Amino acid sequence: MHTDDSILVDGFKHIKYHQHNFSENEMRVNSETYFNNISQRRSVRNFSNKAFSIDIIENLIKTASSAPSGANKQPWTFCVVKNAKIKKRIREAAEEEERKSYSERMNDEWLNDLKHLGTDANKPFLEIAPYLIVVFKKPFEYDKQGNKHQNYYVNESVGLACGFLISAIHNAGLVTLTHTPSPMRFLEKILNRPDNERAFLLLPVGYASEDAYVPDIQKKNLNEVMKIYE
């Protein structure tokens, strides 16, 4: 049984997909325009404290939540931190872990590879940026009866959602930085997350400061990252 807009597949409703069809030239222009925009994205560590409305953050997270996920389980939670006291606690805990990493955990090769980026254990942006988005992955879910249910391809799914989120942040005219202090379990404690959530990524979001500089780095050429099999 079906209508023009829906059918049943194994008893589940499927709706008609409507694609916006472009000419080949329009696709070329659209893809080039998007590349020219997203290629200007940079990881920024110098933030302004200039405020902006939470509804912009909500739109960014709605975009991230539209990402594909294993069995459509959507195994993520996006925690938005605006509270100054909580941001301060996160900064203090992150810097403690980062100091250990720079002094004990990272080997000489790793430290040498980071030198051209100008990074260190100090993370003032965690307090300066108007918002922090802490992304948690969910390896499993609880149903209403408290039973556990597995999620699938969790890291891949949450990684895709974070990619959508970073692109959306840039598209909105804001900047971010993928911050991954390791280990990140302190985020679960500070934000009082349930036992089925694990910290995945920390993203400060805001405007770049007027004196922001970024490393002069280049991406690999296309022929280094793409192989065509004809």
Score class of each variant (00 low, 15 high):
N196W: 00
L177I: 11
K148A: 04
L126Y: 05
K123Y: 08
N151G: 11
W110N: 12
Y152R: 06
Y213Q: 08
I190H: 11
E156P: 00
R99Q: 07
Y102C: 01
K137Q: 09
L191Q: 12
L165F: 08
G206L: 02
K137E: 01
I90Y: 08
I166R: 08
V214P: 00
R185H: 15
A199N: 00
A199S: 01
A94W: 14
R105T: 13
N107R: 09
P139H: 12
D120C: 07
A94K: 14
I169Y: 15
N122H: 15
Y153I: 00
V205R: 13
R99G: 02
H149L: 04
P124C: 03
D216W: 13
P183F: 03
Y213S: 10
A199V: 02
L114D: 07
K148N: 01
D108M: 01
A208I: 07
E92H: 09
L165R: 09
E104I: 02
I217F: 14
N196G: 00
S209Y: 02
M106L: 12
H149E: 01
D211F: 04
N151R: 13
Y153F: 01
P130L: 11
L191I: 11
E109N: 06
L191T: 08
Y152C: 04
L174Y: 14
T178Q: 04
E127Q: 14
G118K: 07
P204N: 05
P204A: 09
C162K: 07
A129L: 11
K115L: 10
R193E: 00
G173I: 03
H149F: 06
G163L: 15
P130F: 15
H116I: 03
D216S: 15
T176P: 07
E156G: 00
A161C: 09
F186A: 03
D211M: 04
N155E: 13
L114V: 04
P215V: 12
L187T: 00
D195N: 15
I169S: 15
S157W: 03
V135P: 02
Y153S: 02
N192Q: 13
D216N: 15
R91I: 04
Y131A: 01
L187M: 04
S167C: 13
S157G: 04
K115P: 07
N192A: 14
T176L: 06
A121N: 09
R198K: 10
K189N: 05
E97A: 08
L117M: 10
T178M: 11
L160S: 12
